[in-house]
């Protein structure tokens, strides 16, 4: 068809523009995804009995700081990535910070520990459950984020998908933290970090298929 005719067609569509919709959709996705992850956690492994008391609560703070900082920084990237033409490189760099922080703390903890306790630190209780549950809990958040991003106009689908996966993984990890009996920083760095990176990779693979517009 002739482009002039096509332009006639397009300009007949005069629905008013809903500007705030991308931000609202992302917010909704985070809430719904997060709630779904927590519900799944409650159904499968259940809340840790002393989750808000005792020594575990200190480490819970570290876990939540790690996962929620990834959610926050990742979301800032996703917001920028939703609008064509915005420079997102800086926001991408910031995402490394939580990983660097927990990795260096974890490394320090390992080096300071006696060789005997290192094994227990790294292969803490339920590491396999952790590795399996976090990716599972991340499924609903990922689906919700993809739903929100499909209302936007991301121009680098691989990168946007990857960060959506990262945020989803971090939300899954947030939910798991409320159950997790593991209480060492190296444990958190490895068994929270790996599933989140796994979902980042998965998001990068799925992005070009799910986000195309």
């Amino acid at each position: 068809m002739k482009t002039s005719q096509f332009i006639d067609l397009l300009s007949s569509d005069v629905q008013p523009v809903r500007r705030g919709i991308v931000g609202k959709a992302l917010a909704v996705a985070l809430v719904i995804g997060g709630v779904a992850a927590v519900i799944l956690m409650l159904i499968t492994v259940g809340l840790r009995p002393d989750v808000f008391q005792g020594a575990g609560s200190m480490l819970l703070l570290v876990k939540l700081l790690f996962t929620l900082s990834l959610v926050a920084l990742g979301t800032l990237f996703l917001i920028a990535a939703s609008y064509p033409g915005r420079n997102v490189r800086r926001r991408l760099a910031f995402l490394l910070l939580p990983f660097l922080a927990i990795a260096s703390l974890g490394l320090g903890a390992i080096l300071l520990a006696t060789p005997m306790t290192r094994q227990d630190m790294i292969f803490g209780p339920e590491w396999l459950t952790c590795l399996m549950c976090i990716p599972l809990f991340a499924i609903a958040p990922f689906a919700a984020l993809i739903w929100a991003l499909r209302m936007a106009a991301p121009t680098d689908l691989r990168r946007t998908g990857a960060i959506a996966g990262l945020v989803a993984g971090a939300l899954g990890a947030t939910a798991y933290a409320l159950h997790c009996p593991g209480d060492s920083i190296p444990f958190i760095a490895i068994w929270y970090g790996l599933p989140i990176l796994l979902w980042t990779l998965l998001g990068a693979v799925l992005g070009p298929h799910l986000l195309r517009w």
Partner: peptide, 27 residues
């Protein structure tokens, strides 16, 4: 054109137009 049309809600009028349109064209 249809991409620009259906995603026009992602243009921020306080920002330059060309980088936005160009990003869509290149995409």
């Amino acid at each position: 054109l249809i991409g620009i049309h259906t995603r026009r809600h992602t243009y921020d009028p306080s920002q330059p137009f060309t980088p936005w349109a160009y990003a869509i064209a290149r995409y």
